[in-house]
Computed example of a mutant assay.
Amino acid sequence: MRTLLLLLLSLSVQANADFEIRLGVHNFPPYFVMTDNDNCGGEAVELTRNILQQGNIRLTTVCAPPARLYKMLQNGEVDLTINIKHTQALPANISFIQTPFAQLSLILLSNSSAAAPDKPTIAAIRGFDYHGQREVMAAKGFSFIDLPDSISAVEMFVRDRSTALLTYQAPFDHYLQQHKLSFEKHYQYKVLEHIDAYYVISEQSPHKVYITETLNRYASSEQLSYFAH
Rank of each mutant, 00 (worst) to 15 (best):
D129T: 09
M156W: 04
D129C: 06
K180R: 02
P120K: 01
E135Q: 07
A116I: 02
D118E: 14
D173Y: 05
V158A: 07
Y130N: 15
F144R: 08
V154F: 02
T163G: 00
A153L: 04
V158K: 02
S143E: 13
E155I: 11
I151V: 15
K119G: 02
F183V: 05
S152N: 05
L176F: 04
D149H: 14
S152G: 03
K180M: 01
R159V: 07
F144D: 08
H179V: 02
Y168H: 09
A170W: 13
I125N: 11
F128R: 04
H179T: 05
H131N: 15
A114K: 02
K140I: 05
F128V: 10
T121R: 00
P171A: 05
V154H: 05
G127I: 06
Y130T: 15
F157E: 03
P117V: 10
S143T: 12
I145K: 01
T167D: 14
L176T: 02
P117L: 08
V136F: 13
L181K: 03
G132D: 13
V154A: 04
G132I: 11
P171K: 01
L147G: 01
V136D: 04
K140V: 04
D129S: 10
A164L: 13
T167A: 15
F183G: 01
G141A: 13
T167R: 06
F172Y: 13
L147R: 02
S152K: 03
D146H: 05
A123S: 15
I145M: 09
F142H: 02
A164D: 06
R159M: 13
Y168L: 11
D118A: 10
L147P: 01
I151F: 13
P117E: 07
G141M: 09
R161I: 11
S152M: 06
R161H: 13
K119D: 07
R134Y: 13
Y175V: 00
R161K: 11
